[in-house]
Design a binder for these strands. Sequence first.
DNA 1: CTGAAAGCGCTTACAG
DNA 2: CTGAAAGCGCTTACAG
Lengths: 341, 341
Amino acid sequence: MRVTLKDIAEAAGVSVMTVSNVINGKSARVSAETVERVRRIIDERGYVPSASARSLAANQSRLVGLLVPAASEDSLAISPHNIAIIGQIERRLRKRGYHLLLRGVSDTAEIGEALRSWSLDGAVLLGFLDEEIAGLHRRVTGATPVLAIDSYAAGPLTTGVRSDDFTGARLAAAHLLSLGHRRIVFAGPSFTDVGVVHERFLGFQQAFEDIGLSIADCPVETLNTTHENGVALGRCWLGAHPDATAVFATADILAIGIIEGMLEAGIGVPDRVSVVGFDDLDISAYITPKLTTIAQDIVGKATHAVDRLLTLVEGGERSADPLVLDVRLVTRNSTAPPSSR
Amino acid sequence: MRVTLKDIAEAAGVSVMTVSNVINGKSARVSAETVERVRRIIDERGYVPSASARSLAANQSRLVGLLVPAASEDSLAISPHNIAIIGQIERRLRKRGYHLLLRGVSDTAEIGEALRSWSLDGAVLLGFLDEEIAGLHRRVTGATPVLAIDSYAAGPLTTGVRSDDFTGARLAAAHLLSLGHRRIVFAGPSFTDVGVVHERFLGFQQAFEDIGLSIADCPVETLNTTHENGVALGRCWLGAHPDATAVFATADILAIGIIEGMLEAGIGVPDRVSVVGFDDLDISAYITPKLTTIAQDIVGKATHAVDRLLTLVEGGERSADPLVLDVRLVTRNSTAPPSSR
DNA sequence: CTGAAAGCGCTTACAG
DNA sequence: CTGAAAGCGCTTACAG
């Protein structure tokens, strides 16, 4: 019932390998008129090659995995920032003739299984912790190219693309400092000595050093970057940080929650406290006050991640260094000079 | 280099078909001790079956497509509402032992190609227009089960799951009417006589009829449901609808834009105009004022869509009727009685 | 309970 | 420029 290569070959009066050559564009090996005739028959019959047969025979699938962490029973743990990236990755892969397998992974050991089960040509890792990525061994990836987004892990297996987190945080802090703030809270997830959050912390620190100050007086609030946690922090702000006049949150979604909690508690933003986020989500411009934040190049991240991965897939060399994308400060209404009380 | 069935069979001293039986759980055909021994060797060697070989031989792939509209050069056209669904669909498929192929489709003709190329066991259509779905022929889907989310198209090929749009709109309008509003703008995309928006319009109308009124005085604003369009409408509200005291927007993202535009123009929400949305996005609770809206059961939509699809995949019958999920009114701060001026 | 063999739909050297 | 044949790694009747 399925139309196969063989059917086309018979209808065209040629061998299957000739049809195969036509389909794969190896037209140097086939006369122009044969190509023409075969093409026509393929269209007439609506022939679609079997990807699994092709994958099995050629040992390449034109399938790329997008692997995302997910507790086994949970939905994918996709932050608002990462959601935007998925659509872009699909688009880029499609444009380059690949397909996307989206897969939640509850244990990094499953990564190897995913790669081998589908003979994936490559995979993009999105949203994993640096520890998880650093723990990846060639034993699990095998020879399959894998590339991580937003990773600082040193391993050569996954070098990928990320934003310039250091500079982003430095810009954010410099903006607050230039407005006159000195006691600025750093709010973000706990971090070790490597990773996105650590880089942002270093950048934050650097901005102070740039003007001869230290962050000694700046409290660090450790919390996961969710809206809910932000609200909680905003509500109890006065008790926790009576002297602070500003906060830098490592994610917009957290910053948005903080603002909401503060407004509930009667703390004016930016009159009493200025808030800066990181990501520049769509919604960051929808809330009141509109959020001052650091914009990342999401389209660039997705596009370059795919391009770099496919370079490897198609036999190219892996760059030793990750691609670092520029960020920029977007000044909106959640920041102002500290009130002069 | 790849560990194959044959390798396992040799190591275990049995035939490949015995190993195959063990893997596929057909343990009735194998002695318990053989099962045990084979299992151990599989673990030791880290054997992972080849999905493409299996797909080719068994004519079933355990792959399900999630097909989403996308202009060819564009990113996936995923509304905030649909984004939330994707993660849930992946989770449910994974739980049931299937994998997800995410694919942008720029022309419905590509649907057939996607199905056949990967021998997909089934596919979920997300975000297509009813006209597109209605135009689908068995010629393109073949024998592959396909299920549409949020479709009212009558064809038996795609019957799926959707929310109770009629009731949702009716609840929204009834809420506004009970507050005392009479001149209420209906804002949403253009619609024909079938589809989500049409149903919401009917529900809107019904709420008026329920209390013996007509919608004769209610203007309809036709615009695509984007934040941007909402802002534009909100800004020019006074000129366009000086007498209206409320608006029902068919999507939260639109409602959020409308509120923003109104606030910019100095129109108080809900003091001067009440706004109701539809979807209950996360962000709808983050904005000020928090949005009154109709909540849909997103997890239910995704879960039931997958379950219904897999019923078909596994040989079950297609229900003649779509599954209709309950909706509920979430009353927040964007609605109030009309001001008594 | 177990196995030998055919076949799924392709691609890839190899030969002509 | 074209073809016959082997093989990719599985599953599926069929036989014993």
